[in-house]
Design a protein around this nucleic acid. Structure first.
Lengths: 109, 109
DNA sequence: AGGTTTTATCGTAATATTGCAATATAAAAC
DNA sequence: GTTTTATATTGCAATATTACGATAAAACCT
């Protein structure tokens, strides 16, 4: 019935899926890539750069923020979003472990 | 209007997002983990192991298959799904590059 | 051929996601 | 204090995803 049955899966399976969901939209990939290229990220830039409406960008930023990937603070009048380094490396390790632990030779065809 | 504006993003951004989408459900994580543990994967096992209905499992397998992550063949009467090693490593590299290329120090707070 | 087992497809319901216009909020500038 | 600028929230429409019952298809076994 359209509801993800998250309760039947392990915590780590749900967490990895949750993180993957954030990367599962090109706008969020683009936003992360753009932020990483800037010294200071002003959100209004994103609207111009990405090409989506301001509320949509705000929504995407919120998704990224929800899994702890962004730190934000004010500097002058502009909100400055930054990538949370600790969290980023944590996720990098999770994905790397997932990719590395999969045995790719279940049956040789 | 609910349509992903994929055309305004780069091919690599869309491809990474597309791959992430496959990992964005705990059932598919669980399926991949289970397949990797088996010598031979019989789909009916998955229904018991994962705890979702057979059509749902079939649907999830199809999502995984669509990005080329599965090779399947028949052995006796049972379909044997295997992880496509080349594709797996390709995706591993894509994710690794994405994680590594992000500069995490856009502004120090 | 007829029955059994396994997987795929169809149809449909519930929920989630994506996107934006309109509006609200908050801080800076004047 | 009002205007400007930047971001967040609300409300809603379009589409996508998740899930499963019913059914079909394919292969095996008598």
């Amino acid at each position: 019935m359209g509801v993800s049955k998250t309760h039947i899966f392990s915590i780590s399976q749900n967490e990895l899926a949750q993180a993957a969901k954030v990367f599962a939209h090109p706008a969020r990939i683009a936003i992360l890539e753009y932020i990483s290229r800037q010294e200071n990220c002003i959100c209004n830039d994103l609207v111009d750069v990405i090409g989506l409406a301001q509320p949509t960008i705000s929504q995407h930023l919120n998704e990224i923020k929800k899994i702890g990937l962004l730190k934000g603070t004010f500097e002058g009048k502009n909100l400055c979003y930054c990538i949370n380094q600790e969290r980023w490396e944590e996720l990098q390790q999770s994905f790397n472990a997932f990719f590395s632990n999969i045995n790719q030779n279940c049956c040789q065809i």
